[in-house]
Simulated scan of single mutants.
Amino acid sequence: MDRSARRQLAEHIAGEVTMSDDPGATLRKWRTEFDVTGAELASTLDVSPSVVSDYESGRRDSPGIGVVRRFVEGLLDIDETRGGDRLRQFARVLSAGFDSDIVQDLREYPATVPLARFYDAVDATEVVAGGSLEDGPRTVAGHTVINSLEAISRLSSEEFYRLYGQSTNRTLVFTGVTRGEGPLVALRVATPTPTAVLLHGLSEAELWEHAPRLARADGYSLSVTEQPLEETLAGLRALP
């Protein structure tokens, strides 16, 4: 793992914790993001599990910068022993210039993945098939998972364009949607359009009635999934 990328990520997490109105909850959020148990972290830090629990619950005074630094380095050390997947994931998000609350996952695959396999991994239902049979098997080379509500409330129009427009042969996954009109309308101004769009947390019956027409007009595959978010993220991370 690039040391500078690790350092940048460590500084980002530490800064978020120290600036938080509830540092314990933010510590817990990051431990959960890295899929590390309290017992695992306690063992790495050579403290009792109750110490980790007390800081996360607020039963101890707000952690100082020394405690936060140890906590963060412990998470990164554990992840590196597992192969560094989460570290690389968050480093990619930061390098793209977006906060992890907005971009929840961002990956480039070592080899293209058939779109049908992608959909199987996240239990998705395809509503509109993009491309044509003459184009050959449909594949994607990566994905970006975007919290739609956070993006709408926090990104400028320029940042919207940069986030959407940089996505070409990949799937854009939007979470926090109600019917899907917000992200799909925003996609109309982005070029080039992605290969596929997945709306998370929707059934086909709940989908905005104009969504299929927009997908056909812009030529991307449109799908929905009601799978719990953690299962969806786990399915995406299992892709090669």
Results as ranks from 00 to 15, higher is better:
E181W: 06
R70G: 10
T37A: 07
E16Q: 15
T18D: 10
A186Y: 03
A91Q: 05
D218Q: 15
E181Y: 09
E181K: 10
G83V: 10
T178P: 03
R31I: 00
G165I: 11
A196S: 12
D54T: 08
P194W: 00
T232A: 07
R179V: 03
Y161A: 15
L27K: 01
F118R: 00
P114T: 07
A215E: 02
T144E: 06
A5I: 09
D35S: 13
A39M: 10
Y119W: 13
V103G: 01
G74D: 02
A205P: 07
L133Y: 14
T175E: 01
A14K: 07
T178Y: 08
G176V: 00
H12N: 12
T112N: 07
G130C: 04
L229R: 11
L87N: 06
A196L: 02
Q227D: 11
R138F: 05
F34I: 03
A217G: 09
G97T: 06
T195P: 02
P194H: 03
G180P: 01
T26M: 15
S43V: 05
A190R: 04
V177T: 03
V51W: 12
Y119T: 06
S203H: 10
E181P: 01
P228C: 09
R162K: 13
A42Q: 05
L45E: 05
T125Y: 05
E33V: 10
G201D: 01
V140G: 01
T125F: 06
R162F: 09
T32H: 08
D2H: 14
Y164N: 04
L199H: 00
E231T: 12
Q89F: 07
S53E: 12
R60W: 07
G24S: 12
G201L: 11
I152K: 07
L207D: 00
A91R: 03
L214I: 15
H210T: 14
F90S: 04
E181I: 10
R170T: 13
S53W: 02
Y55E: 03
G219C: 03
R154D: 10
R138K: 11
S50G: 13
L229P: 02
E134I: 15
W208T: 01
S50R: 13
S62E: 15
V185I: 15
G38C: 04
G74L: 05
V93L: 06
A129Y: 08
L41G: 00
R70P: 00
D135T: 10
E226C: 09
T139L: 08
R69A: 15
E11K: 07
L115W: 01
R117M: 12
L233A: 04
F71P: 04
H12T: 14
E159H: 11
E204G: 12
G97Q: 09
R92C: 13
P23A: 14
L163C: 03
R154S: 14
